[in-house]
């Protein structure tokens, strides 16, 4: 080997960065705080008129009043029970129908077009019909939320069943597992990740539909509270209601994440 000559090397320029999301924990909170601070400053200084936005501090105060008056739970509990019953109905029927569609060709041929046909119907449009079918009480509210969560659950579920690794099912058959065992021990757990991510969407839709469900004949409920605030043009109360809905959304999303972490810990 010859003595290495003195040469000037150029460093290879780096071009591999980006495109890889990294956790930036506090940034989300910072964006929130900044926006709220801006709104507070704007409404205080008069830069934003009282007609455009309420003062965030007033919204907080209104929330405080709602809490101390005990009305918060008077509104929250009926809404939560409507959400729970409606979503439980819609999701459980949706998962069952989705699995049936995933497993049986006739079910698929018969129900997929039907589901595609009812998916885009704005469920709010059917509210008067539900009132006639299920009465003006809780029945029509459960039905609306159940119906709204049913279709996305079905679509997510049969998509998830379709995505279950066929070799696992074939393995089950090759060991002589019964049909029910294969559904219970292979198809359902295999479809669970897809079902759970469908559940995020379904439950968000349930919260959206809560306001619609409480349009007819609800004295108490977060949706009724928001509608009343809207009709009174009471922006503080409107925002309190909206914030409660947002929090409900964040909480359900968090609960699903928790369930995912528990049930899907087998994923890397």
């Amino acid at each position: 080997m010859t003595e290495p000559k003195q040469r000037t090397g150029q460093p290879v320029s780096f071009r591999g960065g980006g495109f890889a999301p990294k956790p930036r924990r506090w940034f989300g909170a910072a964006v929130f705080v900044t926006l709220i601070a801006l709104a507070e400053w704007g409404t205080r200084s008069g830069f934003i008129s009282a007609l455009t936005l309420p003062k965030p501090s007033d919204v907080l105060a209104t929330f405080g009043e709602l809490y101390t008056s005990g009305l918060l739970f008077k509104h929250l509990l009926p809404s939560l029970s409507r959400l729970a019953v409606g979503a439980a109905l819609g999701v459980s029927i949706g998962v069952s129908v989705g699995i049936l569609i995933g497993l049986f060709s006739y079910m698929r041929a018969g129900l997929v077009p039907l589901v595609a046909a009812i998916f885009p119907i704005p469920k709010i449009a059917l509210l008067p019909l539900f009132v006639i079918w299920f009465g003006i009480g809780e029945g029509s509210k459960y039905a609306l939320i159940a119906f709204g969560t049913f279709t996305p659950t079905v679509v997510a579920t049969y998509g998830a069943v379709d995505n279950v690794d066929r070799t696992l099912i074939r393995m089950g058959q090759s060991f002589g597992l019964s049909w029910w065992s294969i559904v219970r021990k292979i198809v359902f757990p295999g479809a669970l990740p897809g079902i759970l991510s469908g559940l995020r969407i379904s439950l968000a839709i349930a919260i959206i539909l809560l306001v619609a469900a409480e349009m007819l004949g609800a004295e108490y409920g977060i949706g009724a509270y928001i509608l009343e605030a809207g009709s009174l043009y009471d922006l503080e109360r409107l925002f309190v209601g909206v914030v409660i809905l947002s929090l409900l959304g964040v909480i359900t999303s968090g609960v699903i994440a928790l369930i995912e972490r528990r049930l899907l810990d087998w994923r890397a």
Binding site: P128, V131, I136, M215, L216, G217, A218, L227
Partner: peptide
């Protein structure tokens, strides 16, 4: 509350 006159008539 039923929002609309039409809905009230139905109810």
């Amino acid at each position: 509350p039923l929002q609309k006159v039409g809905a009230i008539i139905g109810a």
